[in-house]
């Protein structure tokens, strides 16, 4: 299950990054009638302006994916560094507001931030603001657990400095946690980025954007369902596979403690 979902995620990412080169038509130029149903030349038909859906699908993932990856990496980096420090210091920081952070969906802070920031920056900022504390929490727990382990004690008994212990012993031992958490942050960022794109708060490129495609083609659902279903399916499968891999990774990291 884990392998399959990871493999699927890699295929989607690869196609997305290579996609623009593979597109059979210019994704920005109308080549069919609006919402033309699928045909031999246009397997997924045309969109609201008669642009080839397959080409837009191939070209339209890159921005969303890169944005989500950047946002997730930023959140995980901030959270991991904070979590290492908090777990090592035995801090219970954030315990008071944790349930509020869990309860308020990331879209609300993103919308509030979008008042004064450009849409893409709001996605990154909201992912960091709402996601880094969650990363911090799991990394802190894992670090606090590692702190009492024999290998950390052994490092102290050979006189290693705290920073060396954290980076050489603790971080590799708990690395599965931030790695899996990166997946969860990516899913959140993807949800956020697609939501803001659908709401028209980010500047979708002319070549298309999976989330913006959803909005453009909603009204044409009856004429060419593929124009709506294809980007929806891709977004759903990508989120599902990354989340499944991340959950499996977290279970592994916290379940057995062995990362062979």
């Amino acid at each position: 299950m884990n392998r399959v979902s990871l493999a699927f995620a890699f295929v989607v990412v690869a196609v997305t990054l290579l996609g623009p080169a593979l597109a059979p038509y210019d994704p920005a130029a109308p080549v069919t009638a609006p919402w033309q149903a699928s045909s031999v030349g246009h397997p997924l038909g045309g969109d609201v302006l008669g642009r080839d859906v397959l080409s837009r699908l191939l070209a339209g993932g890159r921005r969303l994916l890169v944005l989500s990856l950047v946002a997730a990496a930023a959140a995980t980096l901030v959270g991991t560094l904070g979590g290492l420090a908090a777990g090592w210091g035995g801090s219970r920081v954030l315990a008071a507001g944790a349930d509020l952070l869990l309860a308020v969906p990331v879209l609300l802070p993103a919308l509030v931030l979008a008042v004064s920031l450009p849409g893409d920056a709001a996605v990154v900022a909201a992912t960091v603001v709402a996601g880094a504390p969650l990363t911090l929490g799991v990394v802190r727990d894992a670090t606090a657990g590692a702190r009492e382990r024999g290998y950390v004690r052994a490092a102290r008994l050979r006189g290693e400095r705290t920073l060396a212990v954290l980076l050489r012993e603790v971080l590799p031992a708990v690395a599965g946690v931030p790695a899996a958490d990166l997946g969860l942050r990516f899913v959140t960022a993807l949800q956020l980025a697609s939501a803001l794109a659908v709401l028209g708060l980010t500047d979708a490129p002319a070549t298309g954007d999976w989330a913006a495609m959803l909005r453009e083609n909603l009204a044409g659902a009856a004429l060419n369902p593929a124009a709506l279903a294809a980007p929806a399916l891709l977004l759903a499968m990508l989120s599902l596979s990354v989340a499944a891999a991340a959950h499996a990774g977290l279970r592994h990291a916290f379940g057995t403690g062995d990362a062979s």
Binding site: E148, R149, G150, Y151, R153, A154, L157, R158, G159, E169, P172, A173, A175, G257, D258, A259, S260
Partner: peptide
């Protein structure tokens, strides 16, 4: 260092003693 290397401790839980990453 001369003192640390002479007095060393090993704990009871084989799961915990070694770093899973090394």
């Amino acid at each position: 260092h001369a003192q640390l290397r002479r007095v060393q401790l090993v704990g009871q839980n084989p799961r915990d003693e070694l770093n899973p990453a090394h």
